[in-house]
Structures are given as C-alpha cells and as structure tokens.
C-alpha cells in the first residue's frame, strides 16, 4: 500500500502576534491579572518599532518590577529604591546618545523617590519614565502607597486610608507637568484593550521625546494589583476603571509642541 504524500495546507499562515525582539523569552513571575507584564510588552514593542534595542539601557526599580531587566533583551541595571532617576541621570550624562528609561512603581517614584523624580524632571533630564501607579505597595505585601485612594484598605491602612491621618493621594503627572524641564507627561490606563492601545502610543511619544532630545518624558499607567487588592483579574480591571480613573484623570498634562504634530 502506498501512502499519499501529505497535502500542503491551502491557506498560508500570517503572523499577527509575536514576541517583540526586545522582550526576553522568559516565564513571568507576575501574578495573574497584573498589568506589569502588559506594560513590559508595550515598552518592548515600542523599542523594537523605533529600532532602539541596541541603544537602550533600562533601569529596574525596587518593587515588583525589580527583575524587569530579565524580561528585556537590552542592557539593564537595577537601582536602589526610588533612585532610578538619579541612576538614569548618571548613565545619560556619560552616554548622551543612548536611550535611557526607568520603570518605577508608585511607592518607588512617589514616596521614597519623590526627590529624585522631581529633580530629574526639573533638569529636563533626557530620560523616559514608565510610571506604574497601582495604588499600593505590591512587592512588600500590599501596604499603603502615596497613591492609595481615600478609604482604600491596605495592610497598613486596615480601616481604609483616613485622609485626616494619612493624608491625600498624590497626583504625580499633574505635579511633574508644572516643571519646565518636562517635555511629555501623560496619564493612561491599562484596564481595557482600547486604553492599552492608547498607552502604547503614549509610550512611543515618550521615547520620541527622548530621541529628539526634548527633555524629560513620563507616562503614568493606571495599573492593577489583583493580589493585594484581593480581587480577581476582571474585578481589578473594573476597579481601575471605576475608582482609579475618576481619582487620576486620564489625559495629556504636558506635550511639547514638537510632539503635538507627530503622528505615530
């Protein structure tokens, strides 16, 4: 009996989704429903699209993204808690033609690193900052962050954040946009595909600002921490939409004129 040669499929496969070159082929340590992984992917896609992989140095923070450099196929360093903008400054000042970005959580950027981020922005440091605002300290087990919403329950505000005692949330994008050194400061959300697409466009513009030497650029991403919020991934997405977006309005807080006409 003769076996017929297998017939070739008639349809040709088209690649519609693949791992960006700048993203390492590594299993993730992030929790299910955490948007850190999505943010990493957006950064990697933008770096690839702009052809920057071999020029980029990424700076990982202290926080859940402390191992961020393991997920990227470009050079990376790990900073002390909150100090990533200072470390980025040191790198960028000696290698001004390289692309330097920090990736920081809200505890890292808005609490312990408040001084470093404000001064990097004020100096117009030509770096890009990806700011993950998940309204909580993820890595240390869910304590209150400077961005924790009023009445939000965390392990260190077990009765809910009492603004009379623990103060009010900090809106970093609004603050940083007041500084003359800032070229691009926007807030986006990660709670659904449409918003994620807008987030990617913003990340692209932030890197464009750096490539063009326009000054400091930052994209704040409203993000999830289902684990410490004690929610399912779907609930966490909805919580961002229903609670964080009203408290942290999405929008463009500073866009340098050179970027306004740019189509990406």
């Amino acid at each position: 009996m003769t076996v017929a040669a297998p017939t070739k499929p008639k349809t040709t496969l088209k690649m519609v989704y693949q791992r960006p070159e700048a993203l390492a082929d590594t299993p993730t340590h992030y929790c299910p429903g955490c948007t850190h992984g999505v943010a990493h992917r957006l950064v990697a896609e933008v770096i690839d699209e702009m052809g920057l992989r071999e020029k980029t140095i990424g700076i990982a923070p202290v926080g859940c993204a402390v191992l961020a450099y393991d997920y990227f196929e470009f050079d990376g360093v790990e900073a002390a808690h909150g100090r990533a903008p200072a470390m980025a400054t040191g790198i960028k000042r000696v290698l001004p033609d390289r692309i330097v970005f920090t990736y920081q959580g809200d505890g890292d950027l808005a609490s312990i690193g408040m001084g470093e981020i404000v001064h990097a922005a004020a100096r117009g440091e030509r770096i890009t900052v990806i700011f993950i605002n998940n309204a909580i300290y993820g890595m240390t087990g869910g304590q209150m962050a400077p961005t924790t919403l009023p009445n939000q329950i965390t392990t260190s505000s077990p009765g809910g954040r009492d603004v009379a005692v623990q103060g009010f949330p900090i809106r970093m994008s609004e603050i940083l946009a007041t500084l003359d050194g800032a070229a691009y400061v926007v807030r986006r959300s990660m709670h659904d595909p449409a918003n994620i697409r807008k987030a990617k466009k913003a990340i692209r513009l932030a890197f464009e600002a750096q490539v063009r030497g326009l000054g400091f650029s930052l994209v704040e991403l409203l993000s999830t921490c289902p684990t410490n919020w004690k929610m399912t991934p779907a609930e966490a997405m909805n919580w961002v939409r229903d609670n964080m977006v009203p408290a942290y309005p999405l929008g463009d807080y500073k866009v340098a004129p050179e970027l306004q006409k740019l189509r990406v």
């Binding site: 002390a80 200072a86 980025a88 040191g90 790198i91 000042r93 470093e116």
Partner: peptide
Amino acid sequence: RAFLQAESEVAAINMVYGAACTGA
C-alpha cells in the same frame, strides 16, 4: 566631560552608580 550638582548626596551617589555601570 560631565559635571552635575545633584539635588542631594543621595542623588549624587546614585548618579555615580549609574555612570559607574557604563564603565566611565
């Protein structure tokens, strides 16, 4: 060459750290 007056010694040493990582 690069000179920068940092906002604090905390920032200064972390700028040194960053630059040192480039082998400068």
